[in-house]
Design a protein around this nucleic acid. Structure first.
Lengths: 176, 176
DNA sequence: CTGTATCCCAGCGGATACTG
DNA sequence: CAGTATCCGCTGGGATACAG
């Protein structure tokens, strides 16, 4: 379980070249926020939001723990966490350990959990292309077999989707 | 090829819950920028950068085409594209169509292509969770079979990595 | 067509101080 | 421990004008 996972991620990262298929004219423009990528960026695109989500993926639940690990001030953590709760990525719930006083914890919802692949994909990219010689201090492995985990594109028929095998079809929502 | 891909993405998005395995103490803090996710965010985390990359994935190469499709001003496009070229995600190359004057084009490098899964993962997440009723105006399909494409976690042994099957091991680079 | 140069504003996020 | 309140600097990004 140690041998293969010494190198945090292997180099076989999926390269996905999108091949245009629909009719997107040269003059076409996205209406602001019409693309899901745009919406996602506006919702959780800030550094602090994604970094807080990262720590939540790693199991942090308490306010000061989240703030300290990410390295942001409590003020920033406070407003960002509030946003994440309002958006539905986290739930804030009080809990009581026997003999202890009441505490708060931030728990990922399914919506929040579902952001993990996106965060991991970014991490994987940074790990491969923005190396500073030290490497990523965290390596992710498949619990069942110990092999390193990577993010890749698959289709609904469960084929691996390789470079240049993606077609984009544009439906509507363009203007001008 | 049309039937299954009418619904832009299916709901079987991979949910990846990271299970902590290494020794990350409560008091641990990331050194700023030590995590690959952080580095990636600092490099290409801005809205305009990711949206420009999206258009490049869709095949846009010319300056004004990129700027107009993203819906940002030329000033922003200029500085952002310059950054992307300096970082190595794009190459700027002049080209000459016979009988035409010289033009510039921005071409994705391998580093740039490799960011596609991250962008698609974010898009997929937004598509699922930030719906406004209109849906994502673009649907992505596997060119070979026409089935919708999704981003998911796999391990090096080519197992599908499902919810809660990821273990994180922390190596070093913590402080305090 | 492919940019560059200014001006300006809103929002992110740091620092510090203060509450329950 | 779990926040809130202020103040304030930096940068992303819009608008407009100009240049090769």
């Amino acid at each position: 379980m140690q041998k293969a996972s010494q190198m945090p991620y292997d180099a076989r990262v999926t390269v996905t070249t999108v091949r245009l298929e629909g009719r997107m004219a040269d003059r076409d423009t996205w209406t602001a926020g019409s693309c899901s990528l745009d919406k996602a960026l506006q919702a959780v695109g800030s550094r602090s939001a994604l970094l807080l989500m990262r720590e939540a993926f790693y199991g942090a639940t308490r306010f000061d723990e989240l703030a300290r690990r990410v390295g942001i001030t409590e003020a920033v953590a406070s407003s960002r966490l509030k946003e994440l709760v309002e958006l539905g990525l986290m739930e804030r719930r009080p809990y009581q350990e026997p003999g202890q006083r009441t505490r708060q914890e931030y728990v990922l919802t399914e919506m929040g959990q579902d952001l993990a692949p996106a965060a991991l994909a970014l991490m994987q990219w940074g790990d491969r292309w923005l190396q500073d010689g030290r490497g990523n201090p965290v390596s992710l492995t498949h619990t069942d077999c110990g092999e390193p985990v990577r993010i890749e594109a698959r289709c609904a028929a469960d084929h691996h989707v390789g470079p240049g095998e993606v077609s984009a079809r544009f439906n509507r929502s363009y203007r001008r």
